[in-house]
Amino acid sequence: MSPALSHEADPAGADWADRRADARRNHERIVAAAVEVFAERGLEATVPEVAARAGVGKATVYRSYPTKADLVEAVARHRITWLIERVDAAARQPDAFEALRSLLIDIAERLASDRFLVEVLPHDQRWNGQTRSTEQFAGLVAAAVEQGRLRPDATLQDIRVLVGGYSRVLLDLGIRDPAQWRRYAALALDALRT
């Protein structure tokens, strides 16, 4: 089951606060269903699949999200919000290397069960652009280098390439076992150790 959704996680959330209670419930069911269906099927998921999982008709989904792209954006925002919050928590830890290790393990576990995140993450500007969260993530890598735990030339780009590489391969192989994903997250980080 997906984590609770907030209005922050849904671009249309604020607009729904003033709607009828049944319309709000339908909207929440649609977003929760979309998160689940896209996690299972990735971008191949369809609006009819989301509608069926939510227990509503396609027209109800299209009233909230006129196109599949709008629905994809709502799910992407939800997923990226989780990642940003997790990076923020890691950046506050005093041991940068252990915080980075924990962060990468958490990301691997999420990716193991979320095909959508694997497919969308490399292209999302909230994650890849010049944002506060990417600066925090880069700062975490730099702090681990400064603490002597990562090789001096290690960068956030290195982490992205390594995580993106194992994610794509494991996804293509159909491996969903979180233990396997955690193993490759640890190997990726070990490749950058001093």
Score class of each variant (00 low, 15 high):
E73L: 15
R101N: 05
V169T: 14
Q125M: 13
E28D: 13
A191Q: 09
F137G: 05
A144P: 10
R92V: 13
R115M: 01
L104V: 00
L162D: 08
D70T: 03
R149C: 02
V163C: 14
D172S: 13
F97L: 14
L162V: 00
S64C: 11
G42F: 01
V75H: 01
A4S: 12
T81C: 13
S102H: 10
V120M: 14
S133A: 15
L150P: 02
A33Y: 07
Q93D: 08
T60R: 07
V56S: 02
D10P: 09
S113C: 12
L173C: 12
F38E: 07
A17W: 13
I107G: 11
D88P: 06
A96H: 00
L187H: 14
R126F: 05
A17G: 13
L150T: 00
R25A: 15
D190F: 03
A69Y: 02
P94M: 02
A59M: 08
D15F: 13
D10T: 08
R41F: 05
A9Y: 11
I80S: 11
W16Y: 12
F137Q: 05
E40P: 06
A96R: 04
V61C: 05
A186Q: 13
V61I: 06
R149S: 13
L140F: 04
V72F: 10
R53A: 10
A69M: 03
F116I: 00
G165K: 07
A34M: 11
L173W: 09
R19Q: 09
N26M: 14
S64M: 09
D10Q: 12
V31R: 09
A45F: 00
V169L: 06
A185V: 01
S102Y: 15
D114T: 02
R53E: 10
D15S: 11
A89E: 14
G57R: 08
A89K: 07
A96S: 04
T67V: 02
